[in-house]
Simulated scan of single mutants.
Amino acid sequence: MQRIKLIIAYDGTDFCGWQLQPNLRTVQGELEKSIARVTGSPVRVHGSGRTDSGVHALGQIAHFDVEDRFASVLWQRALNSLLPDDVTVLQAIPVSSDFHSRYNAVHKTYTYTLWLENNFFLPWRRHYVWKCGPLDFEAIDKGMQYFLGEHDFSSFQNTGTLIKSTVRTIHDFKRYPGQNAQEMVLEICGSGFLKQMVRNITGCLVTIGRGKAKPESVRSLLQMKDRTAAPATAPAQGLCMAGVYYGDEGCGGTDTGRNQSQDSGVGEQI
C-alpha cells in the first residue's frame, strides 16, 4: 500500500464541516467520493482535524492509503478534475506509512478575520469575516498575551467531544491587517485546540475590544475552568485552518520541542 499526503484548501460555506456525516455534504465525503472514482473502491481519508460547518481551510492536511498500482497516479491533477469548485488539493505527495496527518501533528495555526467598520460592509466578504465593528486594539493586544503558554482551556471549550486533557499550549498569537482596510486578522498557533476553542478565544477578545471586559479578565477565566463564565462563541465564517506542522516544523518554522502527547489534536473540532 502507498500512503498519499494531501494539502487541501476549501470554502466551508456550503459544507456541513469536515467530518463524514450520513446524507450531509462534507469535505471528507467529497474527497472520498473523488478518490473512489479513481480507485473503483472505497478509500478512507484521515484529516489532521475536524472543522465545523462554515469554517474554511487554506492548509488542511489529510492522508489516505491506496494499492501500489495507484501510486503513480497524479493525484493532485486527478482529484482537482473531480472535486467541486469549493475544495481543491494544493499538493499530493507519497509519504511513509509512518506518517499520520492527525497523530503526528505538532502545531496548528488558525486565523480569524474581523470586520471593523459599522457604516458599510462588502457583501462578498460576508462568508469570511465577523462583522463586529470598531475595537480597541491595545486592549486586544493585552488580552492576547494572557493566552500564551500552557493552560487548562476548559473555559474556552464547547461541549460535545470526549478528550483526555483540556490542557493546551499556545506558542504564538498575533494580529495583522486583512484583505481590506476594514479587516483585522487574529492568528493563533498552538499545540492543539479544543472544540471551538479558537472561536471562543476570539469571542472573548472581541468582548474585551468592545470595552465590555478587561484584558486581565482572561487570567481569571482560565483559572475558573468554567465555559459558562466566558463570553459567547464567535461565528464560524471568520475562522480558517491556516496550517498544520510536523516534525521540526513549527510556528514560524521553529521547533519548540513540545510534548506530542498533548499535541495530538484528539477531540479537536474547530
Rank of each mutant, 00 (worst) to 15 (best):
L116R: 07
H127N: 09
V89M: 05
P231R: 11
A105K: 05
V55E: 15
G49A: 10
I35K: 11
T13L: 01
N200G: 08
W115I: 03
W115R: 02
Q196I: 00
A230K: 10
Q145R: 12
G247L: 15
I35M: 15
I201E: 07
I61D: 08
L83N: 10
L194G: 06
S165D: 02
D263G: 00
H46Q: 09
Q19C: 06
S48R: 01
E67C: 14
G133R: 01
G238E: 05
T113Q: 07
T228V: 09
R69M: 04
L79E: 02
D86Y: 11
V55G: 09
N158S: 09
A71C: 10
N180I: 06
F99G: 06
S261H: 01
L162F: 01
R77F: 13
A230L: 08
H56K: 15
G192P: 00
R168F: 14
D85Q: 14
R199S: 02
D152W: 03
Y112W: 00
G47L: 13
Q91I: 02
T169I: 06
G12C: 05
D65N: 15
V185Y: 01
L116E: 07
Y110W: 05
V43Q: 13
D85Y: 09
W130P: 02
D85C: 11
D248N: 14
P42Q: 12
Q179H: 15
M184C: 09
H100G: 12
H107P: 02
I8Q: 04
K108W: 01
L31E: 08
P177C: 10
C240E: 05
N259Y: 00
A234H: 08
D136H: 08
T111P: 00
D85I: 10
F64S: 11
A9V: 04
I61E: 15
Q179M: 14
G178N: 04
V38K: 12
A78K: 13
A229C: 03
R210Q: 07
E67Q: 15
G49P: 07
